[in-house]
Amino acid sequence: MYGENKTGKGFVFSTDAALGIIVVLIAAASMTMLYAPDSSWQKIFQSTSRSMADSAVVGFYMNKVPADMGLETEIPAAVKQGYCGRIYDYNADNGAPGIQSAPMDRNYCGGI
């Protein structure tokens, strides 16, 4: 072992201590992997979906269609992971007196 003298006794640290370090490092690596937060992909999707959700709300209340906000009415087929924000609209002036209008859902979707 590095640092040992001819007698085999450690003057910097002993073989047992070196083995101890290896065990601690393996344990540390295992714990880091075990308790690691969300993967980077999840982080990216979480951030992107939040942005899409904001766009959906702004688009809806500004009376914009999904395309105006860079979104679509359905989750695009070519994405790895998609998001859809569903917001209900209500047309009170449906031109049918005495009959209640039905809320209609409007989807603002996207993905990455």
Binding site: Y90, N91, A92, D93, N94, P97, G98, I99, Q100, S101
Partner: peptide
């Protein structure tokens, strides 16, 4: 919007 719709339909 439902309030508006209901009031209009109450005429």
């Amino acid at each position: 919007k439902a309030t508006t719709d209901a009031l209009a339909d109450s005429a």
